[in-house]
């Protein structure tokens, strides 16, 4: 062969081209363990927990004295016989988590199923955007809490208003980011596709959708975050069970350690759902994961 001027395998980076996605994940995980990052992270946690312990239980600083202390909360949380009836050993704890998760799942899936196609069409068709976008932009800034009365009037029962509120916040985030994603696509890609004989529909399928994918997943990350935010707001106002409901009723019943247990649980579950969305994104955008892996 006469054309080989430089060897492709050296230009492809030091990694072989056939590294599987699992292999890549493992590789990144072990690199992460070897870096100082996990230890800095642990130190960060230790500082905050240490401050909490000192401020409440040792120094009893003003404003902190009525807050539940670190040891009290953790003793309650991991107790087989909790004083206020809620710990990792009571089924009630998992009922709250399960019900919140179920609401998040319904709302997030609905927001994704409706928001992504809407965002794609908003970005793709100028006419469609002129119809819909102004309306969208007027509705979007309305805070979720302002929707609460309407949600309760419109939807019967305690479950659907909460899901509606959660959906609403997610939907706006997903739609807007998807639309921005379509707009962010370099015009050269659609031009190249039409040069190569792609029809308008083929451009949509092979350029617009995959090209917008990074923004769509950024949108879904934001979406899952605001979903938790509005879920808790909704659960505090209406609904039975759920982590927001737990926090609110614990406050009213003066069972303060349960507030903190509810809050920390929200943080952990929220982080886990975010990580799941991120993992789904990485799985669907191998090209991006590999590009970023080279940059690292």
């Amino acid at each position: 062969m006469s054309i080989v001027l430089d060897k492709p395998d050296t230009a492809g980076g030091e990694r072989g081209p056939e590294l599987s996605s699992l292999g890549l994940t493992m590789y990144r995980f072990s690199a992460w363990l070897k870096s100082p990052r996990p230890y800095l992270m642990l130190i960060g946690f230790a500082i905050v927990l240490g401050f909490w312990y000192l401020a409440v239980e040792v120094l009893q600083l003003p404003r902190f004295e009525s807050m539940p202390g670190l040891t009290e909360v953790f003793r309650e949380w991991f107790s087989k016989d909790p004083i206020y009836g809620l710990s990792i050993y009571t089924p009630e704890y998992y009922t709250h988590i399960g019900i919140s998760l179920r609401r998040i799942a319904y709302a997030f899936l609905l927001a994704t199923v409706l928001g992504v196609p809407l965002g794609l069409f908003l970005g793709w068709s100028k006419t469609f955007r002129e119809f819909v976008f102004p309306l969208f932009e007027v509705l979007r800034p309305i805070p979720i809490l302002a929707w609460v009365p309407l949600a309760i009037i419109m939807f019967s029962g305690s479950e659907s208003p909460v899901i509606f509120l959660t959906f609403l916040a997610s939907f706006f985030a997903t739609t807007l980011n998807t639309m921005l994603g379509v707009e962010s696509i370099d015009e050269s890609y659609s031009r190249a596709a039409s040069c190569l004989g792609a029809s308008r529909w083929q451009v949509f399928k092979h350029v617009v959708i995959p090209g917008a994918m990074p923004y769509i997943f950024t949108g879904l990350q934001i979406s899952i975050g605001v979903a938790w935010f509005s879920l808790v707001a909704g659960e505090m106002v209406s609904g039975q069970f759920g982590l927001g409901y737990l926090i609110n009723t614990s406050y009213m019943m003066i069972e303060y350690p349960k507030i903190i247990i509810g809050m920390i649980t929200l943080g952990i579950v929220g982080f886990a759902t975010s990580a799941m969305v991120r993992a789904a994104g990485d799985y669907m955008m191998q090209w991006r994961v590999r590009e970023l892996a080279l940059v690292d």
Binding site: R191, G197, W287
Partner: peptide
């Protein structure tokens, strides 16, 4: 596809492998 542009900043689809990129025109 009788006149194909090679763009200033390159327009290979980053979400397709090199092979999928090369096969794109005939696949369409």
């Amino acid at each position: 596809s009788d006149r194909i542009v090679v763009f200033q900043n390159g327009a290979l689809f980053p979400w397709k492998t090199n092979l999928e990129n090369v096969a794109f025109g005939p696949m369409m």
